[in-house]
Amino acid sequence: MKRRSWPLLGILAFGYAFLYVPILLLILYSFNESRLVTVWSGFSTKWYGELLHNQQLLDAAWLSVRIAATNATVAVVLGTLAANALVRQGRFRGRTGFELLLMAPLVMPDVIIGLSLLLLFVAMQQTIGWPDGRGFTTIAIAHITFSMAYVAVVVRSRLAQMDGSLEEAAMDLGARPLGVYLQITLPLIAPALLSGWLLAFTLSLDDLVIASFVSGPGSTTLPMVVYSSVRMGVSPQINALATLIVLIVAIAVLIAGFTMRRGPNR
């Protein structure tokens, strides 16, 4: 029934090329022997070797991963609660404000979130003595604040799609509300929780601006290290790092696609 429209396909192809050519070039030049991006002087994996011996970068990566995992876990809990509230509690007082507050971090510029949270942490330290200094905890809190909105969006749409009579049936068969949630609702929204977790993890791993504001001395995250080295100009080590990240993401996507195809509820 559908006719192929060539101009449309052309734009589509251009769009994908636009999205992928820079990444492919990054990967290609990570295997370049020369330090210069423009000159291809032979295949080499030496930048990977250098990368793996860059202690500062490795430390930063480990800190980032820890923060990202903490952030993702807490954000999934909070985001799921918020999604429950929005889908299952109907109209409650302050719902509009709740929704506004929840969704605002999705579009709020990073500089504003970073600045305002830093000022909060400073004020809190002055008045109640907590948080004492800035680092892991403050960065995690900041990341959770904006990640939970993303989780809430993902979980909310899954909850809204769910057949409400499943929960009623469970209750009719004798399950109490908490039992219904644990035995029926949670297993059914599990795919959304997983993708929410991964999303929150990635967002945290990717954030430069907010972390720069709320980190303290001695807590440098991976994007901060990358940023300072990128400001110096092109560095093949960063290409190698990019290649590794793309590789990890590609593997994760393949696994996710594979399990989803085999899973019982698509």
Binding site: Y16, L19, Y20, P22, I23, L25, L26, Y29, V37, T38, T202, L205, D206, L208, P223, V226, Y227, V230, G233, V234, I238, L241, A242, I245, V246, V249, A250, A252, V253, G257
Partner: peptide
């Protein structure tokens, strides 16, 4: 998925990729 995929790789690094491309002696000029 192909649209979303780049989003999962680092934003910073994707911006960085353009430095190498757009440089005066970068790939695009070459």
């Amino acid at each position: 998925m192909l649209i979303i995929l780049p989003f999962w790789t680092s934003f910073l690094i994707r911006v960085y990729a353009w430095i190498g491309i757009l440089n005066t002696n970068g790939l695009l000029n070459h």
